[in-house]
Design a protein around this nucleic acid. Sequence first.
DNA 1: CGGTATCCAACGTGATACTG
DNA 2: CAGTATCACGTTGGATACCG
Lengths: 110, 110
Amino acid sequence: MEREKLESIKTTLDVVCGKWKGIILLELVGQTLRFNELKKKLPDASHQTLIKQLKELESDGLVDRKAYPVVPPKVEYSLTPYGKELEIMLEEMAVWGRNHRLKKEHRETS
Amino acid sequence: MEREKLESIKTTLDVVCGKWKGIILLELVGQTLRFNELKKKLPDASHQTLIKQLKELESDGLVDRKAYPVVPPKVEYSLTPYGKELEIMLEEMAVWGRNHRLKKEHRETS
DNA sequence: CGGTATCCAACGTGATACTG
DNA sequence: CAGTATCACGTTGGATACCG
């Protein structure tokens, strides 16, 4: 197995492996959301965990943060062109995860 | 965004997000390895961290563990048919991760 | 050779309170 | 509304030592 491939996988996992990052990215596919809208979609994520993860995603170049100089503040998050390239991978993850849960249920009821 | 899709992504991340899991899975694509062989391929992973992660992957149904009743012990790890379905996703992760690193280097040298 | 048992440090997540 | 600061806590990964 080529060394570079291994590194690439680690890199991807590093970027995507926050408790809510996969979901954040998926929510942002195809739409721009304000912080509060995003928060409503992730009711189980705490306020500043969400902020932290958004900041990490931003500094990794996946998410674009646009702050409007108004009162009260308004901040919009969206995917960068680059973050959009993750969509294929997210789809694959969704497909596999669905099967995994079905299989798990099957194991537990058999 | 459909609720089920979000759950599916979380499920997948739960399974794949160990420090070495992605790499372990990738190494096992297409080949069966003994514990020691695997260990040699992951020189930076500690002995029982590796064991822990293998156990988790096993209980998640991704990895098959085959122990031969011989002395000294011989244990072989391989992907289950089910684990093999991850291959597509791993490939996508490798592709994206490669781009990510290239972009990062570009940012840092510009 | 492969695995277990403890114990510990580091990190990620979350609760709460406060700011502009 | 969005973000920061501080602190507490659980989980994860790793070091060490020991077993079959």
